[in-house]
């Protein structure tokens, strides 16, 4: 069984796994970090979004062999000051309904705000449209992103 090195939430680890296992399942079933969710397994819902070397990716579509040596951040590792401010905006606006899609939403939103601290509504729409929310929390997500952007700037 091949072995792969990863940095996950700032911790260096190595895992032995079948080369084609998607990162999603390494994270969930092998590392026990269940905040990252399975929704479609095809890269179309965004529930499994994590940061890979700083960029948001759909972890269900990246095989471990392509992730070797990479640095991954999951929702559990989203603990920098600005990231916490995003989570606080989510809490303040009571964004989640069932909550299942929210880790993916927050991961995508966090990456958006790093690259673009002042996103317009259209930019938020375009970026966040890769994440599906079956419960329909979209308008609160949008408000939370704007609120977080404002709070981070201050």
């Amino acid at each position: 069984m091949p072995s792969y090195k990863l940095t996950i939430n700032s911790e260096s680890i190595s895992v032995e796994a079948s080369p084609d296992i998607p990162l999603l399942w390494v994270i969930r079933d092998m590392l026990g970090l269940t905040g990252t969710k399975y929704g479609c397994g095809k890269g179309v819902c965004g529930a499994c979004t994590v940061h890979f070397n700083g960029s948001p990716i759909k972890s269900c579509t990246m095989a471990i062999e392509n992730a070797d040596g990479g640095a991954i951040t999951t929702i559990e590792g989203l603990v920098k000051e600005k990231e916490i401010m995003i989570k606080e905006a989510w809490i303040q606006l009571d964004v989640p309904q069932c909550g299942y899609c929210q880790a993916g939403q927050i991961m995508n939103a966090a990456a958006l705000l790093v690259n673009n601290p002042n996103p317009s509504n259209v930019e938020i729409d375009n970026t966040m449209s890769s994440n599906l929310c079956r419960c329909g929390t979209y308008s609160r997500i949008k408000q939370a992103i704007s609120l977080a952007a404002k709070n981070i700037k201050q």
Binding site: R28, L33, T34, G35, T36, K37, Y38, T74, I75, E76, L78, K87, W90, I91, Q92, D94, V95, P96, G99, Y100, Q102, A103, I106
Partner: peptide, 19 residues
């Protein structure tokens, strides 16, 4: 009133059935 589990949800620590 914000949902009971909202903090755990945003921290990824809520255990859904699948978790």
């Amino acid at each position: 009133t914000p949902q009971t589990d909202v903090k755990d949800i945003v921290n990824g620590t809520t255990s859904f059935g699948i978790d």
